[in-house]
Computed example of a mutant assay.
Amino acid sequence: MAKPNKKGPTRTVDITCAKCRTLLYKYRKGGKGALVKCFIERIVEDHTTSTCQCPGCGQVFAREMLIRGTPAYKMIGGKVHMK
């Protein structure tokens, strides 16, 4: 499988917790589909204290995994919102 584009997209989105609306990440997202995964190298600002856990309510919103050989967070459906 091909690796994600090194240059990355220029559009940034805010990723917030669906439960308490706390800002989790600012992320460079490509495409116009739903947020399924976040490649770690594309995260611009990380507002979490522990990996994949909301600092506001403590909810686990993603899982760490390798996607196409690159470290990424696989989002759990309905746990995060993208704006």
Rank of each mutant, 00 (worst) to 15 (best):
A72D: 00
E45Y: 06
P9I: 02
T51K: 15
T49W: 12
V80M: 01
A62L: 09
C20T: 07
K29E: 12
Q53Y: 14
G33I: 13
K32M: 13
K3G: 06
P4S: 05
R42M: 05
G8Y: 07
D46A: 07
G8L: 04
L35D: 00
K32C: 02
V80E: 00
T22C: 06
K74H: 09
E41L: 13
M82Y: 04
S50I: 11
K29V: 04
F61I: 03
L24Q: 10
M82N: 03
K6I: 13
T10Q: 07
C38W: 06
T22S: 13
Y73G: 02
M75L: 14
G8R: 08
R68C: 09
K26W: 00
G30L: 03
M82P: 00
Y25H: 10
A34C: 06
T22A: 14
Q53P: 01
P71M: 01
G8T: 05
V13T: 09
V13D: 01
G58C: 04
H47W: 03
K26D: 05
C38F: 03
A2N: 08
L66I: 11
K83Y: 12
G30R: 04
K74C: 06
T70Y: 00
K7F: 04
S50F: 01
Y25K: 09
A2R: 07
R63A: 10
V44T: 12
I15E: 02
T48D: 08
V60W: 11
R28E: 05
V80C: 05
G58I: 06
K83L: 07
C20G: 06
Y25F: 15
K26I: 15
S50M: 10
Y73W: 15
L23I: 14
G69E: 02
T22M: 10
L35V: 14
T51E: 15
S50N: 10
I76Q: 10
L66R: 10
I76V: 02
K83Q: 13
S50C: 08
G77I: 05
V80S: 02
K74W: 05
R28I: 07
I40W: 03
D14C: 03
G56Q: 04
T48H: 11
G58A: 04
E64N: 08
P9K: 06
N5L: 03
P9L: 00
R11N: 13
